[in-house]
Simulated scan of single mutants.
Amino acid sequence: MGWTLDDIPDQTGRTFVVTGANGGLGEYITSALAGRGATVVMACRDTSKAGRLATRIDGDLEVAHLDLGDLSSVRAFADQVGPCDVLINNAGVMNTPFRLTVDGFETQFGVNHLGHFALTGLLLDKVADRVVTVASLAHRQTPTLHIDDLNYENRRYVRAVAYGQSKLANLMFARELQRRLQAAGSKKRSYAVHPGVSSTELFSHTETFIDKLARPATRLVGHHPRKAAQSTIFAATEADADPRVYWGPTRLMGMRGPVGESPSTGLSKDVELAAQLWTASEKLTGVTYPV
């Protein structure tokens, strides 16, 4: 049967920051952690929605505004939030039309990767234990990572490929952060996880007819968001979880099933490319890390 939400250790006295906690996987992550005694900071762009959800969840919850598509919002959040044990980089957008963030980044790359890169760097000194970054099976959708054109200024925009690029960046970032923490002799850890396939709000923002088809289709091959959240919660709470492992569902090509070690592309393991991505991300966001 494998690891389940019933196996979450007691989290009393621990604080978690969860981005995108107001729906989808974030809702189940927040509910499960709060149910084990944790304090959860719900870092969300839509604080009204987060507030309504918080009234339905028993536990110690704090709603705070965070717009990952606006670096000034990321900095403001990082300045006001207190120390935490775990940062969970969960929020994201998927397959959206071409748009730019406030800072001029392609939206999927800007929100999914650069926003979280900046947030993690600004919060790292406040994080006592670990960082968990939610990647995706979709990291397989891009054949390369265009370090010289991350914002699609000189190539045709294909929304699914752009989403794949952003999730590949999530995966490579989590691994590079772990390498840097280990090299610095830090006891902090960085984990990459993926949820498999699940019917969440991510599948309803393409602004095409696909919105009506995607969620029913994902219900057929994927699993409920409560189960999809398990890999993230496992990496966030299990004391002995190996940060070198890419954690996710292990059945039906990773789309569903018990949490375990998941495969990833050779591209995602390219250490030199990950270092180049890190340098580019620092330059784009203006955020440098203490490791």
Rank of each mutant, 00 (worst) to 15 (best):
H113F: 09
G51N: 09
D242E: 03
D125Q: 13
L122W: 08
R155N: 03
F117H: 08
P243A: 15
R56E: 15
K167A: 10
R251S: 07
F77G: 05
T30I: 02
L5M: 14
R219S: 11
P249A: 07
V134H: 08
T101Y: 15
T133G: 01
A138L: 07
S73T: 06
Q276K: 14
I29L: 01
G254K: 02
D148I: 05
S198K: 08
G254H: 01
P216C: 14
A274Y: 07
L213P: 04
S73E: 02
S231H: 08
A54N: 08
C44M: 11
V291G: 10
E261F: 01
L202A: 09
A43K: 04
A138R: 00
L66K: 11
A192H: 01
P216R: 12
Q141P: 00
G254M: 02
Q165M: 09
A183C: 14
Y28I: 00
L137P: 02
E62P: 00
K49Q: 08
R56Q: 13
M42V: 13
F117S: 10
G69M: 06
T19W: 05
V287M: 06
S231Q: 07
T55N: 10
G92Y: 04
A275K: 13
H223K: 03
N112E: 06
V287N: 07
Y289D: 00
D67A: 15
A174N: 06
R215T: 05
G2Y: 11
G286V: 00
P243D: 12
Q165R: 15
D46C: 07
A236S: 04
A118G: 04
Y289C: 05
V291A: 13
A78C: 03
M253F: 14
A192L: 03
I57W: 04
Y191K: 06
Q11L: 11
A169W: 10
H194T: 05
K187P: 03
D60P: 03
D79F: 02
S190T: 02
A64I: 11
V193D: 01
D67H: 11
D240L: 09
A160M: 08
R179D: 08
V81L: 12
R219V: 02
T237L: 00
F16Q: 01
S190N: 05
P216D: 15
A169M: 07
A38L: 01
M255P: 15
R226I: 09
L181D: 07
G164P: 01
L5K: 08
V86S: 11
G257M: 13
T288Y: 06
L5G: 11
V40H: 00
N154D: 14
H113I: 06
D6K: 12
G121E: 09
